[in-house]
């Protein structure tokens, strides 16, 4: 295992430290699929996930939140920068060297239908992690699986059933059990409830919170749904076009958002309260394509308060370390 080599110190309470991470995708076009450009899906992100906390990662489609999550899990290499997990630099490790670390970081998928192997019984799916890492003997594995099924609210007697016999909410419980069976430290939840019905979402959100309390898990909770993130997260990072534009404790971010994008995002969520209708949409335009080279602030085209400086200079995430940080010139200048 490679030890962290960067000059930075890694504090003991930091489970994951992301420094200057970028993820690039080649843009190909024409008959020969020649590489004609690069999309920076994630562009220079610094982030810390502390042990035992839930870090919410919020953004709209195409903002790079899923790519960032997959880079943190080592599922794709970082094209720039470094991901340090529990003292190990994982961002450039080949899959073989990553395997021992895999059991410590797991993923809960968005789609409970696509993420379960339709040809495997749910017992086999849940047990897979134990089989792969050779944990315990057959009987012990079955006992661990049964215990995990109980924890997530599934009857262990159903272990020999196939996924198609289950509802979406129950499948998501299977996916959670599969991720937790290895007793991981970090669990990335990638939109874990957005494919579920409203009445089921709350069951799964409660379960995710209960399991964190029981098992001492650290969550990176990726979602486009601000209400859901407010419900589960301790700290929240907001992404726009590959950059983190604001990061703060939950109360600060939802109570006193500073970045104009965060403010618009919060205002755009339809509230279940017909007496407080908005008279107009809080933000015009749409997220532009990420394959353009930006000069200045990426949000300025849609920003209602942009100034000249936003056109020429890109704002950095500024603010106290571990405090409320915002990438906006107007916030930096004290508005």
């Amino acid at each position: 295992m490679t030890k962290a080599t960067s000059g930075k110190t890694h504090r003991a309470d930091e489970l994951v430290t992301v420094s200057g991470v970028s993820a690039h995708f080649a843009v190909r076009s024409g008959l020969l699929r020649r590489r004609t450009g690069t999309v920076k899906a994630v562009d220079g992100v610094d982030l810390v996930i502390r042990r035992g906390e839930t870090l919410g990662l919020v953004g709209e489609s195409g903002c790079g939140k899923t790519t960032l999550a997959r880079t943190i899990l080592g599922l794709r290499p970082a094209d720039e920068g470094e991901v340090v997990f529990d003292g190990h630099v994982i961002s450039q490790l080949p899959p073989r060297d990553l395997k021992p670390l895999r059991r410590h970081m797991q993923l809960i998928f968005q789609d409970p239908y696509a993420s379960l192997d339709p040809h495997a019984t749910i017992g086999r799916s849940i047990r897979a992690g134990l089989d792969i890492h050779g944990i315990g003997r057959a009987a012990e594995r079955s006992a661990i699986v049964a215990d995990m099924m109980n924890r997530v609210g599934l009857d262990p007697a159903l272990a020999d059933r196939f996924p198609h016999e289950f509802s979406g909410g129950q499948r998501q419980r299977v996916g959670i059990a599969r991720a937790l069976v290895l007793n991981p430290q970090l669990v990335v939840c990638d939109e874990p409830v957005s494919a579920l019905d409203v009445s089921i979402q709350s069951q799964i959100l409660n379960l995710i919170k209960d399991l964190q309390a029981d098992l001492g898990l650290t969550y990176l909770f990726v979602s486009h749904n601000l209400a859901v993130v407010e419900h589960v997260a301790d700290r929240v990072a907001v992404m726009y076009l590959g950059r983190i534009v604001e990061i703060a404790d939950r109360e600060a971010l939802f109570g006193a958002p500073r970045h104009p994008y965060t403010q618009a995002l919060l205002a755009a969520v339809p509230q279940p309260d017909p007496t407080h209708r908005r008279t107009e949409a809080p933000l015009a335009g749409e997220t532009p394509s990420p394959d353009v080279d930006y000069q200045g602030c990426r949000f300025r085209g849609r920003c209602p308060v942009a100034i000249d400086r936003c056109r020429t200079q890109e704002p950095e995430l500024a603010g106290p370390v571990n405090g409320h940080r915002t990438a906006c010139w107007r916030v930096a200048d004290g508005l």
């Binding site: 509802s167 979406g168 909410g169 129950q170 019905d197 409203v198 009445s199 089921i200 979402q201 709350s202 069951q203 959100l205 409660n206 919170k209 601000l226 209400a227 859901v228 407010e230 419900h231 939802f254 919060l266 969520v269 509230q271 279940p272």
Partner: peptide
Amino acid sequence: SMPVQGRRRDRLDAIPGSV
């Protein structure tokens, strides 16, 4: 059962079971 922005509770009142 819905999480509502600005009205955070520690637990949501889930409807048990499924459709």
